[in-house]
Structure formats: C-alpha cells, structure tokens
Amino acid sequence: MKDDARRRDPAAYPASQTLETRFGDMDVNGHLNNVAFARLFEETRVRFNRAGPAAPAVGERRSSFVVAHVAIDYLAEGNYPAPVTVGYAIARIGSSSFTVAMAAFQEGQCIALCDSVLVHRDPESGPAPIPPALRERLEALRLKS
C-alpha cells in the first residue's frame, strides 16, 4: 500500500460504517488485535457489497465477488470499548476487478488502512467483466482527492 496522506483523512471516503468493538477483540495488552481489524474491514466490505452503495438496484441481478487479495497496514493502537468508523471507497476499477480502499478511525485518529481486491464473477463461468450499472455505482464511490 502506497503511503498516501489522503487515505488517513475521513473526508476522502464517500461512505462509512461505524461498528462496535467487542471485549473479545482485545489482545493481552488490552488493544484491538489484528484479527479484530480484519473483522471490522470484512464486515464493512460485506455490508457495502450487500446493502450499501455497491448493492444491486431493484430488479438487477446480484453480482458475485471473490476476494483475491487483502492487505492491512496497522498504524496505531485501537481500544475497546470505543467504536470504530471504517471509511469505504473505490481506489481502482479494472475490467473484471476493483480495489476497495478502507480506513479505520477511532476517536478521530486513523488506526489502520486496508486494500481489498475483489474479482467480479459469473457463477457458471468464473471471472467476468464488471457490468455497466455496477461500474457506474463503483465510480460514484471513488476515493476523493
């Protein structure tokens, strides 16, 4: 992940989701553990793909995705019980895949960054071009400058 200052700015993300942390998310030092960060990013990605801005329009066939790559940079300690707000944006759109850029913020500080590459797929034939309607919705979620 390239160190891009705008990735640490909540205003760069056109969508966000606030999630509660759990007592079980802590490590032995009392900080959010690496699995907790992965869960928070996964939950945000899934919510936006199922019911958020990236979700299908009424009457449109639901797109299917497979996660091809996930990278997480841990920037600062996260703490329980403070909630975490995860910013969600699209960093890149290819012909059959796109990269979701996310950042976790707690008490105003960026504590982690995550990039996830999702491949659009047809259930019968595998990787497939991103449909025009989905591409349009993804374009609307681009990471802001």
Rank of each mutant, 00 (worst) to 15 (best):
K2E: 10
D3C: 04
D3A: 09
D4V: 10
R7M: 08
R7I: 00
R8M: 09
R8D: 03
A12L: 12
P14M: 08
A15C: 12
A15E: 14
S16H: 12
S16W: 06
T18P: 03
T18F: 10
L19E: 02
E20W: 12
E20A: 15
N29F: 13
N33E: 05
N33A: 11
F37W: 04
F37H: 12
A38C: 13
R39G: 01
F41N: 00
E42H: 09
E42T: 05
E43T: 13
T44I: 04
T44G: 00
R47Q: 13
N49F: 15
A54W: 15
A55V: 04
S63C: 15
V66F: 14
V70K: 07
E77G: 05
Y80R: 12
G87S: 06
A89P: 00
A89T: 00
A91G: 14
A91L: 15
R92V: 04
I93D: 03
G94W: 09
S95P: 00
S96A: 14
M102S: 00
M102V: 02
A103E: 00
Q109R: 15
D115W: 09
S116K: 10
L118I: 07
H120L: 10
H120N: 12
P123L: 15
E124N: 13
G126F: 14
P132H: 13
L134S: 02
R135Y: 02
E139V: 14
